[in-house]
Design a protein around this nucleic acid. Structure first.
Lengths: 349, 349
DNA sequence: ACATCTTGTGCACACGATTGCATGCCAGGT
DNA sequence: ACCTGGCATGCAATCGTGTGCACAAGATGT
């Protein structure tokens, strides 16, 4: 008998808190009369095991209700099969849209999605990325407000893809506002408008800068003058507060940084007794579900947000799989509803 | 020299795809001149290691940017430190609210939150629970539409807490509609209403049944007759479609299964030229953010949904920690806005 | 008949952390 | 001097899976 120095120590086998279904590969292997290695390969390297034994193993696994232990897989494999997704505020309907798309795609591929809400606190984002990175293979940063160098650090921490923000060296799913804005321009021009205001979002928001830039690039070419009406909180209240600035300007139409703000603005103007859209045309941004539910329905630039979510995880899948790819630039379109109408001088407010 | 039969086999140490920060406990231990065991204890059993060595270990860990490998911890510990949260539809603002609360609480406790959206498919829920269960310690089932026996199976799969649904033997964070509904009753009665309709949600929805039951329990006591106006899709469109039923009934006020439906209903009635609330008072359910953003502002029964999310994870924490507790029953309140007014016979529609 | 390749399987190690047990050390009681 | 006991630490096993390597048996080529 060959001496075997191993196996000497008696196995204490402490009583541990175990998962409900304590069925492991070992059990399946034993039942099938094969080694754990073969059982493992039956799942992950199908071509390396005899079809009949494989079938037997799979059937037994099923009978025993075997479910692989993801932690063990993650440990040996180095891949958690989970992705992270960070958003500034779940309460803004734009983000659940992105999540929905991301989650659907992830689920299709057997990936899980961890959600983090930063509560609009740019300072907390980097730390949160750190936390997420421990449990995921890669992260989607949606409309991140992080300072540029935090972003650099984050990208070094773990594979990252941005949505609705751009930063050199970091892949990003972006929205091409041009098409939507151009449509808005011809639309407003056709209605007779000349001077249109832009009610901006947060001062250091990337997307706000992008939107303003896009306006400046497209509107003058269509004979429209754009008037900046300040930076505001990207909330309903922010929109309401912007009402006075709008009234005291002499624009006949405004574009607003996002739909929620636009709705706040309109609500406030309605309170003032203004006739929307007769006295002021309003165009929002995002096309959240509620934009179409309001009366009057909000004309707005649609951002394909579920698609953005899907594209972001698709990109990460590819990147993790070593297949290089380019995250897409998504087209926007103007959605025509009832908050835009022929230009008409309003009575002094 | 003591003979050591171990350590004979040469370590091949295959080149594996490793996490970006390849720093493990072993490195920290080596740097600190202690064993991995001590290093480990420096983190998880602080009292069992000398304060000075502990300090040294922690500092070194920090310097080396050590981050513990959650997969390894999960493997040995049997705890993933992650929770799952399943919702029917992220697009309904009620659910992001719950998620926000859950996520905030989870993050505070160092837990992660996995999100699953069932896309309103009750048949898919059980399978999704199975998937989630592999990666989490416990699951929050929010407004689950699962059939009862699926629910039983799910609960056997892994620790579960329900939100906004009840089922014998399964803990649940519930909403006590009574208070809100009672307020609605006295409110409507004070405004002179007698017959109030109920525009129901999905036929087999637990919460719809609960809400209807609550109406039947409270309204007659206040001299109000309740008229059931059918079951409808819990969406904006569903609310719009319910408009005709409402018009053809002779009620002067309606309660609607949720805010989104109420908004749809109101929008449609406005289209018909109805004066809301003069000709019909409307009360919604949930108090989603947008309820207050509409014009007219929607009077509605508030559900403290972020609190529900927090309570659900708090309950699970306790349960996993072996501390038995009872998930709370949360109070609802009526939020008075502009869609309710004195009863006033409307002109025949 | 023998060399070579292919195929299917098992052995054993590795992943990174936790933890029961053993051990060595030092203080204090007798 | 010796025993006792607490404290700090190390050893080694363990969690469940993946995978390189070795090996046996059968297939194939000359």
């Amino acid at each position: 008998m060959t001496q075997s120095p191993r196996q000497a120590a008696p196995r204490a086998q402490a009583q541990r808190r175990r998962e409900p279904s304590g069925v492991t590969l070992r059990h399946v292997a034993a039942a099938a009369g094969v080694s754990v290695a073969t059982a493992s390969r039956a799942f992950s390297r199908p071509e390396k095991v005899d079809p009949s034994t494989r079938a037997r193993i799979l059937r037994l696994a099923d009978d025993l209700r075997y479910v692989p232990n993801r932690a063990a897989q993650a440990l040996i494999t180095g891949r958690t099969m989970a992705l992270g997704l960070m958003v500034p505020d779940l309460t803004n309907p734009f983000f659940p849209g992105v999540i929905k798309g991301a989650q659907a795609r992830a689920r299709d591929r057997g990936l899980s999605l961890l959600i983090a809400d930063t509560d609009e606190d740019p300072g907390a984002e980097l730390a949160l990325v750190g936390q997420l990175a421990q449990r995921t293979d890669a992260i989607v940063l949606c409309s991140s407000r992080m300072p540029d160098d935090d972003l650099d650090r984050a990208a070094r921490l773990c594979p990252v893809v941005l949505v609705n923000r751009e930063h050199p060296g970091v892949p990003a799913v972006t929205f091409d506002s041009d098409a939507g804005v151009r449509e808005a321009a011809v639309h407003l021009r056709a209605l007779g408008h000349r001077r249109v205001g832009y009610v901006g979002g947060p001062a250091h928001s990337f997307s706000d800068a992008a939107r303003a830039a896009c306006l400046h690039a497209e509107f003058p070419a269509h004979g429209l003058e754009v008037v900046l009406l300040g930076n505001h909180d990207p909330s309903f209240e922010g929109g309401r507060r912007a009402a006075d600035v709008v009234l005291s300007s002499d624009v006949t139409a405004v574009m607003v940084h996002n739909d929620v703000m636009a709705l706040g603005l309109i609500g406030r103007l309605l309170d003032y007794g203004l006739d929307i859209p007769r006295e002021l045309s309003v165009i929002g941004w995002d096309d959240i579900e509620f934009a179409g539910m309001f009366t009057p329905g909000l004309t707005t630039v649609r951002m394909p947000r579920e698609e953005a979510g899907r594209a972001a995880v698709a990109y990460l899948e590819a990147a993790l799989g070593g297949r290089p790819s380019e995250p897409p630039r998504l087209e926007t379109r103007l959605v025509f509803r009832q908050t835009t109408a022929r230009e008409h001088q309003r009575r002094p407010g």
